[in-house]
């Protein structure tokens, strides 16, 4: 569904990602993992149109969208829950959701809102509060909910679990499972490798802007040596004593 073809991108003269290629199959969950600064967020932001592409191409359903302006990408079916959530903090939860569905006719708002609130009932309890007053977990739910308001076929979530309480992380991943069941393709960035491997169908490991391994998440889950070689000791696992 989404394909990167030797994508290089970065900021000014700086190149954050080097000739990255991968394909996200329709209806799957694809995880980009790697250390801080490996180029995961830059990749996602390039797909969203916010980071300059320096080479290669981004294809959605075979269509080249490399030069599509960011405002048009939501219409092509891409929605983003970015790093740091970047909610409209002065606006209420409800108004944030309205912005999420801005590119659709106003009639679609009520139905989509009901669906988001069904997925995240917590947001319903806080619907009139400013987004800035929410807890970290609630903010992440709102960031995902806001993206869902756009009726995306490809949902990109950057740093799903960063800075969240374990319970909130569980809620977000439960939602990701349900969204996959609805047929939404999901591209996520995650520093917590254990979580990413559990949730994803396929995984791509980035290191210094290059893909060092990609394959089935199931394979990585079965083969601890692989995880150790490419991902280091992932968080949440006990250290093995020799």
């Amino acid at each position: 569904m989404l394909r990167l073809d030797g994508l290089s991108c970065g900021y000014g003269a700086f190149r954050a990602v080097h000739e990255l290629s991968f394909e996200v199959p329709e209806g799957s969950v694809f995880a980009l993992v790697g250390a801080n600064g490996a180029g995961k967020s830059s990749t996602i932001m390039a797909v969203a149109g916010h980071v300059a592409v320096q080479g290669g191409a981004v294809l959605l359903d075979g269509q080249d969208i490399t030069n599509l302006p960011p405002t048009k990408r939501v219409g092509a079916g891409i929605a983003l829950a970015p790093e740091g959530r970047r909610l409209f903090t002065d606006l209420s939860v409800e108004r944030n959701l309205v912005v999420g569905g801005y590119h659709l006719p106003a009639e679609r708002t009520a139905e989509n809102k009901a669906r988001v609130l069904e997925l995240f009932p917590r947001l319903g309890e806080r619907i009139d509060q400013p987004a800035g007053a929410l807890s970290g977990g609630e903010q992440q739910m709102l960031a995902i909910g806001r993206a869902l308001m756009a009726e995306p076929r490809l949902l990109m979530i950057d740093e799903v679990s960063l800075g969240l309480m374990p319970k909130a992380v569980d809620l977000c991943y439960a939602a990701i499972d349900r969204l996959r069941d609805r047929g939404i393709t999901i591209l996520l960035v995650e520093q917590n490798t254990t979580r990413a491997l559990e949730a994803a169908d396929r995984v791509c490991v980035l290191e210094s802007g290059r893909a060092v391994w990609q394959g089935d998440a199931a394979e990585a889950r079965r083969d601890p040596a692989l995880v150790e070689a490419y991902l280091g000791l992932s968080e949440g696992k006990q250290e093995t004593t020799p």
Partner: peptide, 20 residues
């Protein structure tokens, strides 16, 4: 709402189709 969203974060507003 689109105006307020643009004031807070123009890039995110663009991502949801707002012509900033």
């Amino acid at each position: 709402t689109a105006w307020k969203a643009t004031v807070t974060d123009p890039q995110m507003a663009q991502s949801f189709g707002i012509d900033t």
